[in-house]
Design a binder for these strands. Structure first.
Lengths: 121, 121
DNA sequence: TTCATATTTCGATATTTCTAGAATTATCAA
DNA sequence: TTGATAATTCTAGAAATATCGAAATATGAA
């Protein structure tokens, strides 16, 4: 019982996914893109909007959006001839939760839940 | 009053520092190193210990430790002929807080605190 | 269809990061 | 001092990322 694939909303992220998520926001331009989307709220922003706000070449922006999407931090839906980008709040929260969960291990002195994450080696 | 250098415990991270922190844990080997330190607790681990646990060449490990230290995610103190590495729990929490703070902006519909982070452009 | 807009793909270059062996420095012990 | 241990620095090739202009693709409007 290491991970339950039947759950869509995963409670705990795997290390690999967490690392990918952190890498995605571990770049200033990408973090700025994500924050712009977060601030834009449920309506999101299309690529052109982001481009204007951050003054970034379209091809560069596409490159970064691909990273964010691959890490599950944004969702992209086609809307006419433009692409609507939405911040994936759940994933952001999962990343925060991952950090907090790991952070408190061994500090309070007890294992918080069940040994959910891969230890060993 | 944007940032108070007299405070050791900074309340809010700048975007640049946050991105650096996320980049530091945005690599599987580095995230594993940090988790090992977190699990080791207040005693920390020296480089050799980490090396054995993760089975990683010393020079590679040093490389990653430098990243983590630069991002403020670990603290290194000399202890005899070995180096004691400690997880910087505060910084980890700051990163989590950064995510949660940004995540909730515009979602609840109101600006949470004062416009603490750089908007605009 | 023709034109304009929105975005991606392509291609090319620059830079960074990853990895790890070899050499070096530092420290303690005998 | 000599020897062993701990860690870093040096070096370098491979791989990944970053940046961005130009060309291509897709869609909607006239």
């Amino acid at each position: 019982m290491k991970d339950d694939p039947t759950h869509t909303t995963n409670i705990s992220l795997e290390l690999v996914e967490a690392a990918q998520g952190f890498a995605a926001i571990g770049s200033e331009p990408r973090l700025e893109v994500l924050l712009a989307l977060v601030r834009a709220g449920p309506g999101g922003l299309n690529v052109g909007d982001i481009q204007k706000r951050l003054d970034m070449p379209a091809s560069t922006l596409t490159h970064h959006l691909r990273f964010l999407a691959a890490a599950g931090l944004i969702e992209q839906t086609k809307d006419g001839r433009s692409i609507r980008n939405l911040a994936a709040f759940e994933r952001i929260e999962e990343l925060a939760a991952y950090l907090l969960r790991e952070c408190c291990v061994d500090q309070s002195g007890s294992t918080p839940v069940g040994g959910s994450h891969d230890h060993a080696r």
